[in-house]
């Protein structure tokens, strides 16, 4: 009887996990296997696939500096975006976490508001803000600060701006949850032992909130490096990222095998970042970011 109960208890986590595992297997693992198989096929002149085991796509992707350079550019954009999000997100999260406001929930609601609007629409909104006929130029011209409208859109800076707009809430939420979990007595103890407010922050609050910062950074980096919408909407001719190459290969060139190889490369690179994070900081921190 006791053995049976133990067996039931052992199986319970699997039973609870089975819907998620089934979904992941059917919707992620198996399709990824298909993509891997596809990457070894070839595109024919007619746009169809030649089934077989060919290394041509992999040799091209791994040996051609074009793909390497775009990948490095993508990682650079992802990194800059992440650093900007961290610098902007930390003060915001700190303010929300330690605010004496009665309706702190209202601040959190404001933070969540952008998620109610489509990411594409949020990205396109910058055209009306920064465009030649946009709000910023209108104000500058109305105040006589500039005579001619300034060209602000369609460059690397606006791509980063669009990504920050998209990713900042993820960063703030993660840091906020981390800060919320810090025992306020620790800060008070540091102050009572003679620390200045800044020393207390540097020695107590900041180290304890680092897991949240790291979790937010991971999410921002992975999501930012995998995007292709923002460069299309806000980028200039040369501002494409690695995901845009995948889009070009699969949609424009109808070269699904090459697009599959590129997809796997991006998956491996971003997956490696996640694994590195897990090795040193543990993925469990991310779940805290969502409360």
């Amino acid at each position: 009887m006791a053995v049976s109960d133990a067996h039931t208890r052992d199986m319970r986590p699997w039973a609870l996990l089975s819907p998620a595992l089934t979904a992941i297997t059917l919707l992620l693992a198996i399709p990824t296997c298909f993509v891997i198989v596809y990457s070894f096929w070839l595109r024919t002149a007619a746009g169809d696939e030649q089934v077989g085991f060919y290394l041509d796509n992999w040799i091209e992707v791994l040996s051609d500096p074009f793909y390497r350079d775009i990948l490095l550019y993508t990682l650079k954009i992802g990194l800059i975006t992440t650093v900007c999000c961290a610098l902007m997100g930390y003060p915001a999260a700190y303010f929300i976490a330690f605010s004496k406001m009665r309706n702190k929930a209202f601040l959190l609601l404001l933070l969540m508001l952008p998620f109610w609007i489509s990411y594409i629409i949020r990205t396109m909104s910058w055209i009306n803000i920064l465009g030649v006929s946009g709000a910023v130029n209108y104000v500058l011209q109305s105040l006589g600060i500039v005579a001619e409208p300034i060209q602000m859109l369609y460059n690397e800076a606006t791509v980063i701006l669009g990504l920050i707009h998209f990713l900042l809430p993820f960063m703030v939420l993660n840091i906020y949850v981390s800060l919320e979990g810090i025992d306020p007595n620790l800060n008070a103890a540091a102050r009572s032992l003679g620390s200045t407010p800044f020393q207390a922050f540097r020695e107590v609050t900041l180290p304890l909130s680092l897991p949240g910062l790291a979790a937010g950074s991971l999410l921002c980096f992975v999501l930012g490096s995998g995007t292709y919408i923002t460069p299309i909407v806000l980028g200039g001719p040369g501002d494409g990222m690695f995901a845009n190459l995948i889009y070009d290969a699969i949609i424009t060139q109808l070269n699904w095998p090459l697009g599959s190889a590129l997809s796997i490369v991006l998956l491996i690179v971003l997956g490696s970042v996640v694994l590195l994070y897990n090795r040193y900081l543990s993925l469990g921190q991310i779940s805290k970011g969502f409360g």
Partner: peptide
């Protein structure tokens, strides 16, 4: 159509700065 594969790919590279 006979040049689609090569030219669309080459344009993709030029578009990205090559």
């Amino acid at each position: 159509n006979s040049h689609e594969g090569d030219w669309s790919k080459k344009f993709g590279r030029i578009q990205r700065g090559y």
